[in-house]
């Protein structure tokens, strides 16, 4: 539970979602769900962020944008794919402009299903991702001892 002592910041990017999951991610920040209780702050700046929350599937145009934002986030970082579109492409999988889930471009640590993902699932997903973030941090600090299952995760 050490990770709850820290205050991870999230950055949210709408890849090509229908807005449904987006507004649910935002709803998590508002009084009813209030993930700020866990010290989580939504930031607009990738360089401040620890958790990258992506909604919607990858398409040809935002491939580069997502890669760019991902690269700008300092290590350690985790990626949370929120919603069916982000995890597999969902109903839009067959569209010509959609490449599929986020894991085609960047490694994803937590998959949150749901169409649209409910705020409760998003909270679950983000809290899960904090554990992984902590593991990654330990791993980074002392690469020998901090064995973790996240190494080499796709």
């Amino acid at each position: 539970m050490t990770y709850l002592k820290r205050s991870p910041w999230i950055i949210h990017y709408d890849a090509s979602s229908c807005n449904g999951c987006d507004i649910e991610v935002l709803a998590c920040l508002t009084p009813m769900y209030d993930i700020e209780r866990f010290g989580i702050v939504n930031t607009g700046n990738p360089k401040h962020a620890d958790v990258f929350v992506v909604t919607g599937s990858i398409n040809e145009q935002n491939k580069a944008v997502i890669k760019n934002i991902y690269d700008q986030i300092p290590n350690p970082k985790v990626v949370v794919a929120v919603g069916i579109c982000a995890t597999s492409g969902g109903v839009f999988r067959e569209c010509y402009n959609v490449c599929g889930g986020i894991d085609k471009i960047i490694p994803v640590d937590v998959y949150v299903p749901g169409c649209a993902a409910r705020p409760e699932s998003i909270i679950d997903g983000i809290v899960k991702s904090l554990g992984i973030l902590e593991e990654k941090r330990l791993k980074m600090k002392n690469p020998d001892t901090g064995q973790s299952s996240t190494v080499g995760r796709k």
């Binding site: 040809e60 999988r93 010509y96």
Partner: peptide, 14 residues
């Protein structure tokens, strides 16, 4: 778009 004039001959993947 990824394809030029995609709606002319819609292609599907998957």
């Amino acid at each position: 778009t990824s394809v030029q004039y995609p709606f002319r001959n819609p292609s599907f993947q998957g």
